[in-house]
Design a protein around this nucleic acid. Structure first.
Lengths: 225, 225
DNA sequence: CCTACCGATCGGTAGG
DNA sequence: CCTACCGATCGGTAGG
């Protein structure tokens, strides 16, 4: 969306014989891809990864720059501030999460969808968002809200509300049919909490699969009926 | 436990007439309590509060010092490092949480306790630990593990294992009687996750009470049976 | 526990 | 996007 046309200033010949003070090449990408303008996306992905691993405050903009082979000041060419980078990570994460969820629900083409399979789809899609390969954006959003300004925070909160909206009618249908006994609103909060907390303990490489996890959730939250 | 006997160096008369360079009294407690040696406990409580509100990295040791009326270097008289302060907060939080849980379970004196009321006690005690007035220690432990050294982290992990141990037999009994359908281990992880996440949304001052929350959990996780 | 500091790091910027 | 830099803040310490 925000692809910027870059005007490059290629190095002209050095004016005199002064020793070139270039920093000893820690940065500099391996040239596998020309800088075609998606450097911004690379920065976002690197920031998401580092913010998730180390936390926002513990990650310096220099860390992020180094991760994509830039020098320390360069991220500020793409993002106005470190905060703006964090916000962009969260916003991007929410947009893809919402799109994934929408697609999961839309795959149900039956005229009267079974709320039980609807809930399964919602949960499974949520686990994909949390644990899919490279999906660091949403965990960052879940755990770093504190570092946003209040304006940014309320925008993100709105996106979260949009994301959670489809859960309510599904839970209401389950409640009406006796498969869910707890109040719908508290159920939604508790269920999403159980899922979100899996970020703390779930390991894709060992133990249960995401499908098994989803099964366990349905067995835990719903009555047989 | 770690009460230190303090040897104070009361100010002797100033040797000459040089203007006393005392900082303009931002710090300095209101003398309501003499410094009787529990300054360490005050530091811990202030640190827990600030770490919870702002996060560990976003809280400076100067913030903590100011919160208890000390000067910037003084916390290091009580704690070797900022890390040690964080670790002490978590350790203290876990000890009181374990004690609270033990007391809650011990209040059941029946020879064959009903696992359903046992689970209720565990959940209710956990909510007290998370949301009781001034209980900032455990939320800090839950959300700031990243900032611990690996040695510290594994000690805390052991305390968490001790804390969670009593949940397993209770959940097993419920599973055996058909009141819990999901696998016991995943159930424990998901249930504790649902509870822990309430730190993000529960507000003691409005909405449901802790008792209503506990009821909702039982209704959500257990089958009628 | 205060005083006075130090070295390191960090977000951010001007100027090309 | 690099270069060279600044001001601010921070954890921590010596010495009393």
């Amino acid at each position: 969306m925000n692809s910027l046309a870059l005007t490059l200033h290629p190095f002209a010949a050095l004016p005199d014989d002064a020793a070139p003070k270039r920093p000893r090449g820690r940065p500099r990408k391996t040239e596998e891809e020309r800088d075609d303008g998606n450097r911004r996306a690379e920065l976002l992905a690197a920031a998401a990864r580092l913010f998730r691993r180390q936390g926002f405050d513990a990650t310096s903009t220099r860390d992020i720059a180094a991760a994509v082979g830039m020098h320390s000041g360069s991220p500020f060419y793409h993002f106005k501030s470190k905060d703006a980078l964090l916000y962009a990570v969260m916003e991007e994460g929410m947009h893809t999460a919402i799109a994934r969820q929408r697609a999961a629900l839309a795959s149900d083409t039956s005229p009267e969808p079974d709320p039980r399979v609807q809930l399964r789809r919602l949960i499974r899609s949520h686990f994909d968002t949390l644990h899919g390969p490279g999906n660091d954006f949403i965990p960052v959003m879940l755990y770093e809200q504190r570092s946003l300004s209040s304006r940014q925070r309320s925008t993100i909160a709105q996106l979260q509300a949009d994301y959670e909206a489809p859960w309510t009618p599904v839970l209401e249908a389950l409640h009406a049919s006796g498969q869910l006994l707890a109040p719908v609103k508290l159920s939604r909060l508790l269920i999403l909490g159980a899922l979100n907390w899996s970020v703390q303990w779930f390991d894709r490489k060992k133990g249960a699969s995401l499908d098994e996890l989803t099964d366990a959730c349905l067995a835990l939250f719903l009555k047989p009926c």
